[in-house]
């Protein structure tokens, strides 16, 4: 697709990871996250191993560490929750620096932090190496219902348009001297939201008519059928397979 259809998490580059077919990457990331979630939390070294694996993928994909770490900030609300956990959890308590902390709470916090961070990092890597359109195609090839994929692609395609419309409405409000400061102004904002809904819905009707006039009959044509070689699958699945080995070791040891 052209440069206008690139989402803000995508990072353009030419790397083996970028070149992989999207559905193999989606499957790999999903399998990896499932493996991470099913690892016992007591096996701390296993999470370190997962982080190393992700680091290797990031290196192969030429995603700089700063970029990856910056994107991890999306997790911050849950970090706050995890920090609270040792204070409110049940079970036996230990004294750390004069604070009474729950052992189970500490384990729980570690569990959420480690698994959540690894999951976010894997998703960020996926999004950074795969274009939007490719992601949607990948979802379709993973046998997601076609209607769902179509809805998702319309949402992505018009998400920016609708957001821009909302921005223009805000500019129109502000250029008329309106500034939302408190509860009293909710009426105006809600009217804007209502207008936005009407505009979106009517745009949907127009889009549908335009599609009909171009021969749309309920399904989108697939123009780029990709065949995936066994080598590509095995390359993509190297990450979850390595993670699986670590997970099994984590259970056994």
């Amino acid at each position: 697709m052209g440069s206008g259809h690139v989402h803000r998490l995508y990072r353009h580059a030419h790397s083996p990871v970028h070149a992989l077919p999207p559905h193999t990457k989606l499957a790999a990331v999903l399998a990896f996250v499932v493996v991470v979630v099913s690892t016992p939390r007591e096996a701390m070294w296993a999470f370190g191993a997962y982080a190393v694996l992700l680091g290797l993928v990031a290196y192969a994909a030429r995603v700089p560490a700063g970029f990856l770490l910056g994107r991890l900030l999306i997790e911050v609300p849950f970090v706050a929750f995890a920090v609270l956990m040792p204070f409110v959890a049940e079970g036996e308590r230990v004294e750390v620096l004069g604070l009474s902390l729950s052992v189970n709470g500490l384990w729980g916090a570690w569990n959420v932090l480690a698994k959540g961070t690894l999951g976010v990092a894997a998703s960020v890597l996926l999004a950074a190496t795969t274009e939007l359109r490719e992601l949607l195609l990948g979802l379709q090839r993973l046998r997601l219902p076609p209607l769902l994929v179509q809805i998702a692609s319309f949402m992505i395609r018009y998400g920016d348009v609708i957001t821009d419309e909302m921005r223009r409405m805000r500019i129109a409000r502000e250029s008329r001297g309106f500034e939302a400061r408190g509860l009293r102004h909710w009426g105006v904002l809600a009217k804007s939201a209502g207008a936005l809904f009407i505009r979106s819905y009517e745009r949907g009707e127009r889009v549908h008519l335009a599609m009909l006039s171009r021969g749309y009959a309920g399904s989108m044509p697939v123009i780029d059928e990709v065949t995936v070689s066994r080598a590509q699958w095995s390359y993509a699945l190297a990450l979850p397979s390595a993670a699986l080995v670590v997970c099994v070791l984590g259970w056994v040891l």
Binding site: Q150, A152, V161, E165, G182, S200
Partner: peptide, 27 residues
């Protein structure tokens, strides 16, 4: 409607996505 479902639901999803960014100041 079976044919209209994809574009209309897609646009409404885009609306939901956009309206989640509309901030309502509390105090």
């Amino acid at each position: 409607g079976s044919e209209r479902a994809a574009p209309l639901a897609g646009l409404v999803a885009a609306f939901v996505f956009a309206v989640q960014m509309l901030n309502f100041p509390v105090a």
